[in-house]
Design a protein around this nucleic acid. Structure first.
Lengths: 331, 331
DNA sequence: ATGAAAGCGCTAACAC
DNA sequence: GTGTTAGCGCTTTCAT
């Protein structure tokens, strides 16, 4: 009975006593076959345990049924990216697409490329060679945040980080802070650049000195802590600290305690990327909510729209972000 | 010059003045072609921007060059799983394999299945229908931790969680704790079951009552907190708390403070899943280190070994785990 | 309403 | 050392 290997369409067709074509049409509801034969084919297919070969289908249809997803390797541990990933995956699943993870390790050295119809790039680093090769390849790419290099993506999903940071700074000022500092992220991403610019602009506008220290993406906690110490040393009157890199606010906490600063009291603390630990910290820490899951879903959606021709190449979509005010900025 | 669509092998062959086969062999270093023509083909391929069609290759070779990865949907936000994922992806990339994420949303309703040569299942929940269908499908599956249902996987990677929990409890006892409690995870995974059993066994052996509250996988923080309160109410002499579910130790912290318990002093606190926030908490919290990245890599490796016939079906491999002792258990 | 045949792009036998 | 041929399993004209 059982030959080797999986059941193919021909075998189903033979067993049902119809042609390849009819079997194919019956299984795909093409509306060509009679109700009776469709029924027949469907049941025999089920009986034999048939399942179509995706490679053959892809070859014929000239699409793969999968999209690629690339994230900056260094900071892949963060809750933000995890949520982002699942936003993409869920949206893709709804469209019956698979999602293939692409690492910086997998450089297609002249060899085969990935089996994807398009790619989503989360926070594309200008310095990442895989990002470059993906953007230069023929498959459409959607980036979350702008790519700071010269290559253009087919689509971009972005948020108004600058506006939101200024809103946060206004909030700190309203809560009494006069000397805010920014623990910034390096300008290798659009997000990093935008935050720095917005901060400088706000400081100029409010006539306060620019207290800023910049850190590489994915810097370890002790580097964060050194930078916080440096900021505290630079200006003892510092009375508010905004931490951009994901995780840096939590890492800063012990240093602030060491320096006998009371978070939420004589020092206001806020983060630019919200996460669970911030919510449960003592005191809970104010943070910008980037809606990562929605961001992932929006990127996937834009990519599908472009693939389907429902959105022009070069589309830009904006995603709402929010501010979660907590006790660390005086409630 | 440029027709439409991507460059194919025939076009390269024609341009180089050789046959399809020779072109194919040259590009794959099959060792059949002369050094000279290989050079020729390689350069023309590069000039034309040729890149092989993965679907065609898959169809011909009868493999897909990708493995699937499934995780329990509810707790996908955790750092543990993120690291696990990248362990899998990196190992796969080293073997020139892609990794496709499979969600619980994507149920193959009689239709096409995923384009993968095998799957890795992280903590397979007995109740997850996708896990079941994956295990029952024809592609080999490797699980991280045993599947508690009746279907057998082709391979299993597991750690000695029971032994490690007992070691942790001994550590707490040595630090002076006499009434330890376990905030347990529901026995829907092997991990959850093993921890509960080990705890009960240890309590019996040490002649202390079993203080235990069980929680569903992925329970939200307020449920965690209710359970911690319940434990504190049950036995006021409780002097050590071990939190199993990822993130529950951090969520427990504010409740313990409310109850005026001093973590690391009159109450020792430990977690069964280490993560960054635990390291930076005040005080830092002792935790079991599950080496998630290594676990992911080990699962991928076992799967590749099985696919290549280098490991028998039914292989079981053990992964070392560790204990990170911190101030929350009295240093 | 159904079949027959062509072919997606590639690799593996089998020639020479 | 290189070319010719035959498919992998599927979808899609084009005929009945």
């Amino acid at each position: 009975m059982s030959t080797d290997g999986p059941v193919t369409l021909v075998e189903v067709a033979r067993a049902a006593g119809v042609s390849k074509t009819t079997a194919s049409d019956a299984l795909r509801n093409s509306g060509r076959v009679s109700e009776r034969t469709k029924e027949l084919v469907t049941t025999t297919a089920a009986r034999l345990g048939y399942s179509p070969n995706p490679s053959a289908r892809s070859l014929r249809r000239a699409n793969t049924g999968a999209i690629g997803l690339h994230l900056p390797e260094i900071l892949t541990r963060s809750e933000y990216y995890m949520s982002f990933v699942f936003g993409v995956v869920e949206r893709a699943a709804d469209m019956n697409y698979d999602v293939t993870l692409i690492t910086s390790r997998h450089v297609p050295a002249g060899g085969a490329f990935h089996r994807v119809d398009g790619v989503v790039l989360g926070d594309p680093l200008e310095t990442d060679p895989v990002v470059r090769s993906l953007l230069e390849s023929s498959v459409p790419a959607v980036t979350c945040e702008r790519f700071t290099g010269d290559t253009a993506a087919a689509g971009v999903v972005l948020s108004e980080h600058g506006t939101m940071l200024e809103q946060l700074l206004d909030h700190l000022r309203a809560a009494g802070a006069r000397r805010p500092a920014l623990l910034a992220s390096s300008p290798t991403t659009d997000w990093g650049t935008t935050l720095q610019q917005a901060f400088r602009a706000w400081c100029r506008r409010n006539g306060v000195p620019v207290l800023l220290r910049e850190m590489a993406f994915g810097a370890p906690p002790d580097v964060v802590q050194d930078n916080v110490r440096a900021l505290l040393d630079t200006d003892p009157r510092l009375d508010a600290l905004v931490c951009a890199p994901d995780g840096s606010a939590m890492a800063a906490l012990p240093v602030l305690r060491e320096a006998s600063r009371e978070v939420g009291g004589d020092l206001l603390l806020a983060a630019c990327v919200d996460s669970t630990p911030l919510r449960h910290s003592d005191p809970p820490i104010t943070a910008i909510d980037l809606h990562p899951r929605a961001a992932g879903a929006a990127c996937a959606q834009l990519l599908f729209d472009i693939l389907a021709g429902n959105a022009p190449e070069g589309s830009v979509r904006t995603l709402e972000i929010g501010l979660n005010e907590r006790a660390s900025t005086g409630t």
